[in-house]
Amino acid sequence: MSTQEQSLTEPQVRSDAPKSVVIRIRRRDKPGAEQRWEEFEIPYRPNLNIISCLMEIRKNPVTREGKPTTPPAWDMNCLEQVCGICTMVINGRVRQSCSALVDQLDQPITLEPMTKFPNVRDLIVDRSRMFEHLRRVHAWIEIDGSYDLGPGPRMDQEDVAERYAYSRCMTCGCCLEACPQYYEDQYIGPQAIAQVRLMNMHPSGKMTRDERLEAIMGDDGITACGNAQNCVKVCPMSIPLTKAIYEENRETVVHGLFGWLKW
């Protein structure tokens, strides 16, 4: 695309708009390799998001100093902030790169991979641990079978609305990145606890809630939360994580007590 075309596309270029976008990327060739910074400069256009910048750099990867380099690698899919895959640390804040707009960021823009997950290459991290947590807490409804058994249980719209809030979690990991207690496998983290809440609120899910509660009761479970509240602040889906933690904490206490009495 020629620059002339670009200026035509965008009649609303602010008079103070920069001519270019400078992006510093913290890079790593492969797991275990040293990290290094590389700086890139691309022509400014209004409405660029971080993904478009990366696409532009990828086409012809040359650093700001004019040194040819390898194209930076990152993850992307929906580009609508609903799949969670493109999460990275942008100017020090963890968020989705598809919804991070250049016009709203200070330059130079720094891009770094999330730090709480193994770094695969450049901006790509391996979040399989989060899916592992979902397996561990049995984040599903134990249906008898997928054959036709008629309608499900009736539900109050109010409960549905609360469940809906939890069900929007896209496993992006922002909350874990921001949580001071979450490090390696020291703590299961708010994402999984919110899914426990989601399942335990469902009329059928309630029937197997003990399994889920037990899964979050160990040393690395719900009690590891230091109530720092960072998680809610960074969650892009505005999931009431601290409410989930509070409610499930209560449930585990009751469950623990009950379990102890029985024993």
Binding site: W140, I141, I143, S146, D148, L149, G150, P151, G152, P153, R154, M155, D156, Q157, V160, A161, R163, Y164, S167, L198, M199, H202, S204, G205
Partner: peptide, 22 residues
């Protein structure tokens, strides 16, 4: 219809009527 019922049973938070129906 049975597909929708199944998803309901699997816990999809489908919006409800005042009677609690889908």
């Amino acid at each position: 219809p049975s597909i929708i019922y199944l998803f309901d049973r699997m816990g999809v938070p489908f919006s409800r009527t005042t009677e609690g129906l889908l």
